[in-house]
Design a protein around this nucleic acid. Structure first.
Length: 609
DNA sequence: TTAGGGTTAG
């Protein structure tokens, strides 16, 4: 039994002699009597206690206990499960003050807690305080740095140290280092380490696949998988998760289907992490129907699985479905969290559901006790801005208690561009320039805004500023899968072997839509050049070339799925709509922000691109 | 009477 009592501070001395745990919130002191440690541990994972412990005024005191190690151990495991950095710090200082535990397993646990909470520096400080470090301490520290993903120097330091200590060939340590180097973009070091490694295990293989997937050589990662199979090693959940990551980076649906088959064959489908990873991948590859199929096959989907499906609906612009899914989630008794709400709000915004989005934003804090974060604010600004409520969006930014970041201002900037509000756009652009002076996208967008309004002089000033800062435009390119290969196109690209046919097809299709009365939206060209030249440039945009290629190589009735590295341009957007109508094709384009489904002359984004 | 390290999905 745990008894929880709130009392005034005058009762404190008498309570402190009891075995229990004491903490104070802003107004009350609470005392927990520990008779059943397991329940005690569970208690700390409950949210109502987090709030008290999380408040800045809270402090933690330990009354006497027959075995303080046990008490601390419970506390620390509670810390790691409640993911609270302030609580972790409170325990840390208490450990130092009251018990002076700076080594042994208590120290290891704290290093691990900090590492798992992503606090590499705190983990490092704790680690440095410990006089006796064992392998577990080392591994905990490395995993903390790996999570941060920019720790090559620390990796080298630890690597050298481990060599000196003669513990490098502990497989878990090597794996930690592979992970650290891989996450830090240091693939060379990964390969060198593995070449000299006496013996690895399945985790080492999985990490090799993941390291390649994360560093732009996903095809080599798949190669490692084939080597692994030839070596007679059976894949596990970690293997397929690494492969799913490789699929995402290669963008190959065929490969994803192969991994899906592998998952089924190896009986890994029951693993919630694997199934969720698969459904997320299908959504990212434009196959929302496959995602839904996987989702329906998951037994008792958890919060993450529901949210992954919701995120799929959101990015494809299926707002109503997302809302229904959310209702289903609540009905199933699964508690949504801040990530769920981010995607739900984003779904509302991508579908223009203003009233609904506002309502979800309200109930998020009022019903679910989730305080809005920056992501939620940028969704709300996008939602309001998209429907033309630019002032409301701006007011929300002024009112928000957090310091707006570039995502929040960027959402408003996007709305300024769509609604041609140059005055506000200029102001917002200044904010973005000061927040992120080297992000060329903001300069391009402002310049485009001026160009669209015919303000050529202002547009060229922005371009000059870009040049002065040495910023270049990230070249746009589009990708399309065909015959187990990704075909890449850039503007005016003639490098494809089928180039002649592609241009002929493109001319034919554009001819058809011009006959239907369509005029190129040449305001999307940055430069102030002759109309004819503009039309020529814009007609060779990478997404148009990819569409023409898709029309050539796929059968009638098949959807054409294209990925673009930047936002789709307005002219390509209109062209894709008309092609979908004239050629009777579904065209799906994933740009850097969302999916556009073009069918029968309309786009799922409702023309707010 | 209990706890720590390597891959791990939204």
């Amino acid at each position: 039994m745990i008894t929880v009592a709130s009392c005034s501070s005058s009762l404190l001395p008498s309570l402190q002699s009891l075995p229990g745990f004491l903490f104070k919130s802003r107004t009350f002191f609470y005392f927990h009597q520990i008779q059943n440690p397991q329940r005690f541990c569970k208690l700390f994972t409950q949210k109502r206690f987090h709030n008290a412990l999380l408040s800045p005024q809270s402090s933690v005191q330990f009354p006497s206990h027959p075995n303080p190690d046990i008490l601390l151990s419970y506390l620390i495991s509670a810390v790691s499960s409640c993911s609270s950095i302030s609580y972790c710090r409170a325990i840390h200082s208490c450990v130092i003050k009251s018990f002076n535990y700076t080594d042994g397993f208590i120290g290891d646990q704290l290093v691990s807690c900090y590492a798992r909470l992503g606090r590499a520096d705190d983990a490092r400080n704790m680690f440095d305080e410990m006089p006796n470090k064992d392998l577990v301490s080392w591994n905990s520290l490395i995993s903390g740095f790996a999570r941060r993903g920019e720790a090559v120097d620390e990796g080298k330091y630890i690597h050298g140290f481990a060599l000196k200590l003669g513990v490098l060939w502990e497989v878990k340590l090597v794996n930690s280092l592979i992970n650290l180097y891989g996450k830090s973009g240091y693939l060379d070091a990964v390969c060198r380490l593995v070449e000299t490694m006496p013996v690895g295990n399945i985790v080492s293989w999985n990490l090799m696949i993941a390291s390649h997937a994360q560093n732009g050589t996903a095809a080599d990662g798949v190669g490692y998988f084939n080597l692994m199979r030839r070596a007679g090693i059976n894949p596990d959940d970690g293997t397929v998760l690494s492969l799913l990551e490789a699929c995402e980076n290669l963008g190959l649906l065929k490969l994803a289907e192969g991994v899906h088959g592998l998952i089924t064959k190896c009986g890994l489908y029951a693993n919630a992490t694997v199934a969720t990873g698969l459904l997320d991948l299908y959504a990212k590859l434009g196959r929302l129907n496959y995602s839904l199929k996987v989702f329906r096959e998951v037994n008792n989907p958890d919060k993450v699985a529901w949210t992954a499906m919701l995120a799929g609906y959101a990015v494809h612009g299926n707002g109503r479905e997302a809302m229904e899914l959310f209702e289903g989630m609540v009905k199933a008794g699964v508690e949504p969290d801040h990530v769920t709400f981010t995607h739900l709000l984003s779904a509302c915004s991508h579908s223009g559901l203003v009233k609904e989005g506002k309502n979800y934003f309200d109930i998020m804090s009022q019903v679910y006790g989730i305080e809005p974060r920056l992501d939620h604010y940028s969704c709300m600004v996008d939602l309001l801005g998209r429907s033309g409520l630019l002032n409301d969006a701006y007011e929300l930014i002024k009112r928000m208690p957090l310091k707006p970041n570039s995502a929040v201002w960027g959402a408003l900037f996007g709305a300024c561009r769509v609604y041609g509000n140059i005055e506000l756009g200029k102001e917002v652009a200044e904010r973005l320039f000061s927040l992120d002076p080297s992000d060329s996208r903001n300069y391009i967008m402002l310049s485009n805004m001026y160009s669209a309004a015919g303000l050529w002089r202002d547009a060229s000033k922005v371009r000059a500023l870009m040049k002065e800062k040495g910023l270049t435009r990230n070249p746009g390119c589009s990708f399309i899968e065909h015959g187990n290969k990704i075909h890449r196109f850039s503007v005016g690209d003639r490098s494809h072997p089928e180039s002649e046919k592609i241009y002929t097809k493109l001319e034919e299709v554009i001819g058809k839509i011009r006959e239907a009365g369509f005029v190129s939206k040449t305001e999307f060209i940055l430069h102030d050049v002759e109309q004819a030249v503009k039309e020529d440039m814009i007609s060779k945009h990478s997404e148009k070339l990819a569409i023409a290629f898709g029309l050539l190589v796929t059968n009638a009735g098949m959807p054409i799925i294209i990925t673009k590295n930047l936002r789709i341009c307005g002219d390509c957007h209109s062209t894709a709509k008309l092609i979908s109508l004239i050629e009777k094709r579904t065209i799906i384009i994933r740009d850097s922000k969302r999916f556009h489904h073009f069918a029968a002359g309309i786009c799922s984004c409702g023309d707010y691109w």
